[in-house]
Amino acid sequence: MRFGGQWRSVAREAWDRSLIMAKFLCLLHVVDTYLCSSVLVYGPSMFPTLNPTGDVVLAERVSTWLGIVGRGDVVLVRAPDNPRKIVTKRIIGMEGDRVTFLVDPARSERCATIVVPKGHLWIQGDNIYASKDSRHFGVVPYGLLQGKVLCRIWPLDGFGSLQRGVWF
């Protein structure tokens, strides 16, 4: 009888521990999806704002949710041509804006102008020579926005806001 009681207490303890663990994971998930999360960003498209070798940035989800992102913000966007990939770009035009851009800056000076339709954004990388962005896939719906980059947290000497990019 005592043996059974011992097992029961062990089982209860294990259950309590796993419940606490599950609650912790839930908290982690909610913070990650609704407040902020740290993201590793790499690739040449945002050079020189972000290093091509990789930066860890802090992204917050609240302002995309409330709809208060604006021109010049660096944002995380789910790539329209591949939903499994998330890219980092800068917002150049909001809905209703007239955007003029170089179609192929490496080869020609040809410009094109479009008006961003309702509920869409025009996003571009800071490095216009090595960035696959709205110049290739066109405007992106606002619903693809995953977050706004607040600041760089790694490497530590580059810690700080990314708001003052080459565009402004």
């Binding site: 339709p117 309702k118 509920g119 719906p141 619903g143 926005l145």
Partner: peptide, 8 residues
């Protein structure tokens, strides 16, 4: 899916 013209 989210509407492409209005994310809400």
């Amino acid at each position: 899916f989210r509407s492409p013209s209005n994310y809400k």
